Simulated assay, not measured.
Amino acid sequence: MPSQSDARAEWRPRHGAYWLIILPALAMLVLLYLVPLADVLVTSVMDPKPGLDNYGLLFTSTSVQKTLLTTLRIAALTTFIALLLGYAVAYAMRAANTGQQRLMLFCVLLPFWISVLVRSFAWIALLGSRGPVNAGLMAWGIIDEPLPLVRNETGVLIGMVHVMLPYAVLTLYANMRGIDVRLVAAARSLGASRFQAFRMVFLPLTRPGLIGAGTLVFILSLGFYVTPALLGGGKVLMIAEYVAVQINDTLRWGLGTMLAATLMLSVLAALWALSRILDVKRLFGA
């Protein structure tokens, strides 16, 4: 039998080969991600002068605070609506037969093949004062004059929910597929009604999927730029657009990088806090 020293000697060349394979990807990660990220962090504390003055604006600037609150509110509302609609769609997909599941899954995945920019312009056309939505409501006598559905927070929410809904559906559907249907049947056989079996058995089992989908949708919603910029019409300012204005228009690089760094650190802190409570790898099916 080979000795332990022989096994270590055989492992060393293999180990070196693995590093040779990983090294190009690792170098790209450092050069294209970590170095620019470090530059952003340094700029946030060095421009226009060294110190934490830029971060002090989080507590003193009304415009910065308003932008942060708007971003958090819209992201939270988007997450809530996407989870509500996504849960219903995922539940229907789980209950459908194989052919229907494939068709529904195709419809859920279809928006991924269309640019966010195209979808945003499509919503502007649909929700505009002369669009088919307002025209249909007026034709049915539901409203007397067009509703303001774009260039405000309503339009931003509709557009963002449309983009985020597939993420919620796919995460929840993956969670629901792993639930043993016999558990619900057992609850029914013990005298529980459909609603009681759902509320007391099925819903608690989908809690990891709800947390995972909610976390994913909320984090992605925090960094939205194109949809709020187009459907908000400049009236709904979120962090990403505010950062772009500070860097491209007003040339306040320190403020812009500070907000970008704050957003990144907040997301990392939220994920860290979540990992202390739940198994994040299991939560996202890794």
Rank of each mutant, 00 (worst) to 15 (best):
residue 1 M to V: 12
residue 2 P to F: 12
residue 5 S to A: 15
residue 6 D to H: 09
residue 7 A to E: 13
residue 8 R to C: 03
residue 10 E to W: 11
residue 11 W to F: 13
residue 12 R to F: 08
residue 13 P to I: 03
residue 13 P to K: 03
residue 14 R to C: 00
residue 16 G to E: 12
residue 20 L to H: 05
residue 29 L to H: 09
residue 31 L to G: 11
residue 34 L to D: 05
residue 37 L to H: 04
residue 40 V to H: 01
residue 40 V to M: 13
residue 43 T to H: 06
residue 44 S to N: 04
residue 45 V to Y: 05
residue 47 D to W: 04
residue 49 K to I: 10
residue 49 K to V: 14
residue 51 G to W: 06
residue 58 L to Y: 07
residue 58 L to S: 06
residue 59 F to P: 01
residue 59 F to N: 06
residue 61 S to Y: 00
residue 69 L to M: 14
residue 70 T to A: 06
residue 75 A to F: 00
residue 78 T to R: 01
residue 81 I to S: 02
residue 84 L to Y: 07
residue 84 L to V: 14
residue 85 L to I: 15
residue 85 L to D: 00
residue 90 A to H: 02
residue 95 A to L: 11
residue 98 T to Q: 11
residue 99 G to C: 03
residue 100 Q to W: 10
residue 106 F to V: 14
residue 107 C to T: 09
residue 108 V to K: 01
residue 111 P to T: 10
residue 117 L to W: 05
residue 118 V to N: 05
residue 120 S to L: 02
residue 120 S to F: 00
residue 122 A to G: 11
residue 124 I to E: 05
residue 124 I to N: 07
residue 124 I to C: 01
residue 128 G to H: 03
residue 130 R to D: 14
residue 133 V to E: 08
residue 136 G to R: 07
residue 138 M to R: 12
residue 142 I to Q: 11
residue 143 I to N: 09
residue 144 D to L: 08
residue 146 P to I: 07
residue 146 P to D: 10
residue 148 P to R: 10
residue 150 V to H: 00
residue 151 R to C: 03
residue 152 N to M: 13
residue 156 V to T: 03
residue 162 H to I: 03
residue 164 M to I: 06
residue 174 A to E: 03
residue 175 N to M: 13
residue 179 I to R: 01
residue 180 D to P: 13
residue 187 A to T: 08
residue 190 L to P: 02
residue 195 F to A: 15
residue 197 A to T: 04
residue 201 V to M: 04
residue 202 F to E: 12
residue 202 F to H: 07
residue 202 F to I: 00
residue 203 L to T: 09
residue 204 P to I: 07
residue 205 L to P: 01
residue 206 T to L: 04
residue 219 I to W: 01
residue 220 L to G: 01
residue 223 G to T: 15
residue 226 V to I: 15
residue 229 A to Y: 03
residue 231 L to C: 06
residue 231 L to M: 13
residue 233 G to M: 04
residue 237 L to F: 03
residue 239 I to W: 01
residue 239 I to R: 00
residue 239 I to M: 13
residue 239 I to F: 02
residue 245 V to W: 08
residue 248 N to H: 07
residue 248 N to E: 14
residue 259 L to K: 03
residue 260 A to Y: 03
residue 260 A to C: 08
residue 263 L to I: 06
residue 265 L to C: 10
residue 267 V to E: 12
residue 267 V to G: 06
residue 267 V to D: 02
residue 270 A to Q: 04
residue 272 W to D: 15
residue 273 A to N: 10
residue 276 R to Q: 15
residue 278 L to Q: 12
residue 279 D to Q: 04
residue 283 L to V: 07
residue 285 G to Y: 05
